[in-house]
């Protein structure tokens, strides 16, 4: 299968590739399906992105569509207009996603005012980066949830830790709930 290697500044069209390596400033038009994706620089993709293996991105990336990968490793600024999914994801980023982020294990250090509509999965950990404000979401749902500085409408999980700086409308938990003194939770419900 062909690789897509881009250095410099250009506009290319999407398609199915083995490796996709981008260094520079690139617009990719239409869907991209590939085994691995590596980005250093600025990338604008108008379509869905499906990565069979690892997506490693440093820089600024805007995706007008969904992002699916086995693993996501991201440092920078990521905005996704659709849904995201990954078995595991480590992000140190300004993150904005309009849809649902379905993730096995998430380790997010957010910057600025990051926002994801919904995060669902197994293990979800969210921390604040330097000079960041709050992370916003409608719903966080998973088995193990550990968050700080988040403003969330509903948090639902088995073992839930609501850390400092959180403002949560409603927490539903099955096993254990810990709330930091510097966090506010309006309503808690213990399931079954």
């Amino acid at each position: 299968m062909n690789d897509l290697i881009v250095n410099g500044k250009s506009v290319v069209s999407g398609g199915t590739f083995g490796k996709v390596n981008v260094n520079g400033i690139v617009s990719i038009e239409n869907d991209v399906i590939c085994d691995t994706l590596r980005l250093n620089g600025v990338c604008d993709i108008t379509g869905n992105v499906k990565v069979g293996g690892k997506a490693e991105l440093d820089g600024v990336c805007k995706i007008s569509g969904d992002l699916d990968a086995e693993t996501i490793d991201f440092d920078g600024h990521l905005s996704v207009s659709g849904n995201m999914s990954a078995e595991s994801a480590a992000l140190s980023a300004v993150l904005s996603a309009e849809g649902t982020f379905n993730v096995g294990s998430l380790d997010l250090r957010f910057y600025f005012g990051s926002r994801v509509n919904e995060i669902v999965g197994s293990t979800i950990k969210i921390r604040r980066g330097r000079l960041a404000m709050t992370f916003r979401s409608e719903l966080i749902e998973g088995d193990i949830i550990d968050i700080e500085h988040c403003e969330i409408r509903t948090v639902r999980g088995d073992d839930v830790v609501i850390g400092k700086g959180c403002r949560i409308e409603k927490v539903e938990y099955r096993n254990e709930l810990t709330v930091h003194p510097k966090a506010s939770v309006r309503e808690t419900v213990k399931l079954n």
Partner: peptide, 20 residues
């Protein structure tokens, strides 16, 4: 969803993994 998870004894993580 609540009833399903209880009835079948599966976790949120498992359900979403299957969805993925």
């Amino acid at each position: 969803k609540k009833e399903l998870l209880e009835l079948k004894g599966i976790s949120y993580g498992t359900l979403y993994r299957w969805k993925r």
